[in-house]
């Protein structure tokens, strides 16, 4: 089931008196399936935050349509099923963590009994119980992010929007947040993630879209985007450079990485099976074989650079 469906969405901001316009989103089409973690990638100013804000009714679209849970996104009651952690959020600094949770929980329409129980659970989950009675003004950036995440999850949302959730969080905290998000996914929740930290996005997202200057330039599942279809890494117990004859080495573009690890290139004209048969014929034992991968960062950079050249 599609939780988010965006069709031909555009947003143009006009400066005062409309003298200058900035296109933040340009004909965006996107859909997000239930129970998945979706990552939206893009440079600063690409339009990632604007897209989330449009979906939440904080910014109005210039044209196009959006649906969430199969309904028009402007329906206010949908927000009861949504959680949001904005980038650089500001909680009232005179409140304690618990008071913030209580206030926003009530604003989300939660009843007192359930709210009290839920606040304790969420603060525990993000490991903020110890600080729940301290004023927000004493919190570090990392603590603010943890509290923001707890606030976003307070109403047990089916759809969670997170804008740079690990910003300012230390590596251990980041791992904990990743684990929380994966656990939510297991529960069937859908997570829409904006992040600059591509290595993290790669670790947890199912699908990603790359937004560049307001336009989606690539969308797909992480494996599809990062795998190098024709490159395989192979680990054997022999020195192939010595054992194989030159024609085979040339055909498969054999490349030695270490004493037992090699890189080969395969396609229709040079099938993988033939290479494996050849090795076995020579009595070589294959210890490991895996398709080579690009990092998401490499993919992102190459996509953005290609788009820049195209423009």
């Amino acid at each position: 089931m599609k939780i988010i469906e965006i069709e031909n969405l555009s947003k143009t901001f006009s400066t005062t008196f409309g003298k200058k316009t900035v296109t933040a989103l340009n004909d965006v089409n996107l859909s997000v399936e239930q129970g998945t973690i979706f990552g939206l990638l893009g440079q600063n100013g690409a339009g990632k935050t604007t897209l989330i804000k449009v979906l939440l009714g904080i910014v109005y679209p210039t044209s196009g349509s959006c649906k969430m849970f199969g309904e028009d996104f402007t329906n206010l009651h949908l927000k009861k099923r949504i959680g949001f952690l904005p980038e650089n959020h500001k909680f009232p600094n005179y409140m304690t963590g618990k008071e913030v949770m209580t206030f926003f929980g009530k604003l989300s329409g939660l009843e007192n009994l359930y709210l009290t129980k839920r606040i304790d659970e969420m603060l525990e989950l993000v490991q903020m119980t110890k600080w729940s009675k301290s004023k927000i003004k004493t919190y570090s950036k990392g603590m603010m992010q943890r509290l923001g995440l707890a606030q976003a999850m307070l109403n047990n949302p089916d759809l969670l929007f997170l804008d740079e959730p690990t910003d300012g969080v230390d590596p251990i905290g980041r791992k904990e947040i990743r684990n929380v998000l994966l656990a939510l996914k297991e529960e069937g929740k859908t997570i829409f993630l904006n992040s600059h930290l591509l290595s993290e996005v790669e670790l947890i997202t199912d699908r990603v879209a790359v937004l560049h200057k307001g336009k989606i330039i690539r969308e797909g599942n992480v494996h599809e985007l990062t795998s190098k279809k024709e490159e395989y890494k192979i680990v054997v117990d022999a020195d192939l450079a010595y054992l194989l004859d030159g024609a085979i080495k040339e055909k498969y573009a054999l490349q030695k990485i270490s004493s037992s690890t090699y890189l080969i290139h395969v396609d229709e004209s040079r099938p993988m099976n033939d290479f494996v048969d050849h090795l076995r014929g020579k009595g070589v034992s294959i210890k490991e074989m895996a398709q080579e991968k690009n990092s998401l960062e490499d993919v992102f950079i190459s996509l953005v650079q290609a788009e820049e050249k195209r423009l």
Partner: peptide, 15 residues
Amino acid sequence: LEKGTIDLFLSKPIS
């Protein structure tokens, strides 16, 4: 209306 505050409020089921 401060940035970072209004986003939080407008994401809640309140008009």
